[in-house]
């Protein structure tokens, strides 16, 4: 039995993430916690998150979690989800600019307004619903998931990592942008695996079994 910790910084739907992980890893211990000792003792970490960048970073900093995440990334398998991806980058342009944890160099940008498709038709923002996720690496995180499978998104900001080699998947909505990044044993996605039906559960299952090797 291993311990999987869902990092609790008071932002977002932690319960759904924990329940989805329990579903795919019934023999593991899933804890929702902000306790430093508990996080340090966990075998795997999941950082979810919802809400505005400024509030998320403020909550992470207030609980000294930003520093802990920075220290722990690389030491054990780490999964970031939605804001849990965006906070890993260097800076977000949300809320007039927010400094983030900076373990994945790059920026978080807002979709253009208006966001137009190739026929100059306006697209809705937030990007909300099920979009095709095009895999860009052969990570073990994609095992059992078809290329271009649909995952559930709900976001107005997207990530632009400095190093294109870290992009694990892209999506096309107005333009092509990164929706998953991977850096050694860190994997983080813009979409919500805990809300993406069977393919989402498969990705979470892959994470619970991931040895942290890139591919």
């Amino acid at each position: 039995m291993q311990r999987i910790a869902v990092i609790d910084y008071g932002m977002g739907n932690l319960r759904s993430v924990a329940k989805a992980v329990e579903q795919v890893a019934p023999d593991d211990e899933v804890v929702v916690t902000n306790d430093a000792t508990m996080l340090a003792s966990a075998d795997r970490l999941i950082c979810p998150g919802q809400g505005a960048a400024a509030d998320c970073m403020a909550a992470l900093n207030a609980a000294s979690l930003a520093a802990q995440i920075k220290d722990m990334v690389g030491t054990k398998p780490f999964l970031g989800i939605c804001m849990g991806l965006q906070v890993l980058l260097t800076e977000s342009e949300e809320n007039n600019g927010v400094s983030c944890i900076n373990v994945v160099p790059g920026f978080v940008k807002r979709f253009d307004n208006p966001l137009l498709d190739e026929h100059q038709v306006r697209l809705k923002v937030p990007h909300m619903g099920w979009s095709k996720v095009q895999q860009r690496n052969n990570s073990k995180m994609w095992q059992g998931i078809d290329d271009n499978a649909r995952f559930y998104f709900a976001h107005s900001y997207y990530c632009e990592p400095d190093d294109p080699a870290q992009i694990a998947a892209v999506c096309h909505y107005g333009h092509t942008f990164a929706v998953a990044v991977q850096q050694k044993n860190l994997f983080a996605c813009q979409f919500h695996p805990e809300k993406s039906a069977n393919d989402g559960l498969q990705l979470l299952k892959n994470f619970t079994q991931w040895d942290g090797e890139p591919c």
């Binding site: 977002g12 739907n13 319960r15 759904s16 329940k19 989805a20 579903q23 919802q50 559930y152 709900a154 919500h192 805990e194 809300k195 993406s196 039906a197 989402g200 559960l201």
Partner: peptide, 25 residues
Amino acid sequence: FIPLTVGGGIREVADVRRMLNAGAD
């Protein structure tokens, strides 16, 4: 494990938070 929306009787931010914490998206 798909998105859930909840409506009806939402009057204040505390109601919103309660539903999100329960698992609504």
